[in-house]
Design a protein around this nucleic acid. Structure first.
Length: 103
DNA sequence: CATGAGCGC
């Protein structure tokens, strides 16, 4: 599952982000978005975890947790549109039924 | 000091 992590401290980088999620489950990928214009962190990043349940637990555990002096904003990431291909916007609501069964 | 809203390549 992909996880959106916001309100990151400047001190946190890709490795630091993975280090935060590591104890909650296997982290296959962690990325802190860097603004290429200034070279500083945009203050948010993404984490990829193969286990959706561990990922969800990590979200519950890390959301609001203070790291680097700032409370993290952790949430499931939104579907990202392909770079090639127009059209934007996010359709519909947040899946029906809730939770299980979406996949 | 690049310094704070926000969903990436």
């Amino acid at each position: 599952m992909r996880i959106f992590v916001g309100n990151l401290a400047w001190s946190v980088d890709d490795a630091g982000l993975q280090d935060i999620f590591a104890p909650y489950g296997e982290v296959t990928s962690a990325n802190v978005m860097i603004d290429r214009a200034t070279g500083r962190s945009k203050g948010f990043g993404f984490v990829e975890m193969p286990s959706a349940e561990e990922a969800q637990r990590a979200i519950n555990a890390l959301n609001g947790k203070e790291v680097g002096g700032r409370p993290l904003t952790v949430n499931e990431a939104r579907p990202r549109e392909e770079r090639s291909g127009g059209g934007g916007g996010y359709g519909g609501g947040r899946g029906g039924g809730g939770g299980r069964g979406r996949y």
